[in-house]
Design a protein around this nucleic acid. Structure first.
Lengths: 149, 149
DNA sequence: TATTGTTATACTCTATAACTATA
DNA sequence: TATAGTTATAGAGTATAACAATA
């Protein structure tokens, strides 16, 4: 849609895209530090997040989704299982594969993690005035859509 | 400012904060993959970004800003110097310290990195309709402010 | 005596290569 | 013969501890 606009607007668009990029990168770095369980690496947390969205997955699927090699996922899944955060079951159709499922404990941890990050973000939002927050609230669902495109 | 609102609005606020958090985290993960120089680690890129903002800094300052221990920063600075991305000068007042400065080459690389990420983000923005993009553009400067709070 | 930066060493996370079991 | 997962091993990146030089 950017290409349909006038030259004038194009400059604004570029500036907005640049502002978006840098703001997203900085905010994410700060949000990432708000960890619930320091003993879990970012990838390990990410696997739990993926499982929360997908329900269940095989180690191979998880490796592809997290952009990690299969041996690494073997290690990650084993660690998560040892912490009681996922359970492993045999695949119903293919005896080579396994089915990874998150436990209730993982669900509770993810919920706490979300709460912590939300609280941190909410504390930052205190520094905005009413008008600024209104704009951000309008844009929130759009940002979500963008993240899924 | 959130606490001054009615209960009704508080629910909306929470949802918006949650949407913001998850969108920012997902977008950042995708933006991070848009790297210009695969041989530089995220921290090394981040150090260059910090230098671009601060002009110059001592290794100790950089270590504190990047949340990295001094020995790690020693290694990082040495690597960046070996790639011609930073230069090291003696500190004018304290002979223990050093002054790290980015080179023109680093500046050019950062600019290319920004371009690449902006292009990626712009391609995502194509998937939005006019109205959604307008909302996002309004919110972009607010997001930037939020990231700096 | 405290502080800045470095060297030596160990740990964590991930990758590649080789192997086992199943399709 | 190809594929899913594992085991063994090596390579980044970072940390802690001990040290040198300067304040």
């Amino acid at each position: 849609m950017l290409k349909n606009m006038s030259d004038q607007t194009d400059g604004d668009d570029e500036a907005a895209v640049d502002a978006l990029r840098s703001a997203v990168m900085r905010l994410s770095r700060r949000l990432k530090h708000q960890r619930v369980d320091e003993s879990l690496s970012p990838t390990e947390m990410s696997v739990l997040g993926t499982l929360a969205r997908c329900g269940t997955a095989t180690p191979g699927e998880l490796a592809r989704k997290e952009h990690v090699q299969p041996p690494s996922m073997t290690r990650i899944v084993a660690l998560l299982e040892s912490k009681g955060l996922v359970s492993l079951e045999p695949h119903p159709e293919d005896r080579r594969q396994k089915v990874v499922k998150q436990t209730e404990r993982a669900e509770a941890m993810l919920e706490e993690s979300r709460r912590k990050r939300n609280a941190f973000l909410a504390s930052l939002v205190q520094g905005l005035d009413e008008d600024e927050w209104a704009k951000l609230r309008e844009a929130a669902p759009v940002l979500e859509k963008l993240a899924h495109l």
